[in-house]
Design a binder for these strands. Structure first.
Lengths: 193, 193
DNA sequence: TTGAATTTTCAATAAATACTGAAAATTAGA
DNA sequence: TCTAATTTTCAGTATTTATTGAAAATTCAA
């Protein structure tokens, strides 16, 4: 890793390792890490130089990162090169990642499950299998629509919710009581309402 | 896939594909899927037979699944073979998965970041890099302690929270008002309180 | 303890994935 | 339009990861 400060080198190399546990590969992880901590926009040649990868490898990696919406392409005036940066807001980054994983992994699974649930079970075992698939479908559907909802909260509200931690239960209980008293909203029933 | 019903075959093969996008590999994904939808405990030979993998491959795959706490080992009376099953409760499964990912991916990253944050930046660029790392650390720390908290909620409370979706904001606002009126708890201040 | 049943390990091989350099394609200004 | 700068593609190679069969280790009941 040519001329990287020890601090950055450490970070970059950790992301390389982690990258491969993730779907993403080592190179891509390192490229991202480098861009993430860089105070200035970087171009592909600089990245290839710093990380000692071939130019073509960097090109492929950057394409991958763009497809995950983790890096943004920029142009500097009077320079034909393409420059890259990571979005500033880490929440934004987190959301892109989540959205993209959802698109690639969750949605296809939901769609497969939906199809499977429409089929007529051929025997006992199929009936059981279908029931398991139903449970899985329900869980995934519930958690992903919830994630959608939460994502739409303002960062402030979200932070508030998070800071609240498990004491959120008290709050829920409180509002249920209020609803019962005032008669507003539907009261909360058992799981299968 | 020997003698699997079309329904199960479809499910198993989807998990195979997905498995490789995940950290897990194709074989492991398929083994898990098969166990998940099976109405009875399965032993390694049955799995090898159904999926047409070598016995040793199944053995390795099962070890991997156990290390993720995704399958449980059982013994049938009067039979020396080891039988496997997936936990019944899909929430349990989800939690194991999350915990294990955390242990393997999140915790090492947090620890690397903490180390990096203790170092003295050598120059401008390092100062910036460290600041970016601080942002990342904060986000990861916040979301993982939150996840811990949420995980501790009863399934009912959790379901309640989820069903509530983004209207949770209204509830938070409501309680803030109550707290102000009654003077209980600390009021919620700006992000950097 | 022994030994049959069973699981695990391991070295060899196969398959998949990553990486490179060189050539082709694209781009934007002259 | 032409050309130099730049990015992308691609076929070949290297590396990593997955898979297997056979041998070793373990286990449990007799």
């Amino acid at each position: 890793m040519n001329s990287l400060s020890p601090l950055t080198a450490q970070f970059v190399s950790h992301f390389g390792e982690m990258g491969s546990r993730w779907g993403i590969n080592r190179t891509v992880g390192q490229i991202y890490a480098l861009i993430f901590v860089s105070p200035k926009l970087l171009n592909a040649d600089e990245i290839a130089e710093s990380l000692e990868f071939s130019r073509s490898n960097v090109s492929i990696g950057l394409k991958e990162l763009q497809s995950w919406r983790l890096v943004k392409l920029r142009h500097n005036t009077g320079d034909r090169k393409e420059y890259f940066e990571a979005p500033q807001d880490v929440w934004e980054i987190f959301k892109s990642l989540a959205e993209e994983r959802r698109r690639r992994e969750v949605d296809p699974t939901l769609s497969m499950l939906r199809d499977a649930l429409l089929e007529t079970p051929a025997n006992e075992a199929d009936t059981y299998a279908q029931d398991r698939m139903r449970q899985m479908h329900e869980l995934i559907e519930l958690s992903s629509t919830w994630f959608d909802d939460v994502q739409r909260l303002s960062p402030e509200t979200l932070a508030r919710l998070m800071r609240m931690g498990s004491s959120v239960k008290t709050v829920l209980d409180m509002t249920d009581k209020l609803k019962i008293v005032t008669g507003r909203g539907r009261s909360v029933k058992s799981k299968d309402e």
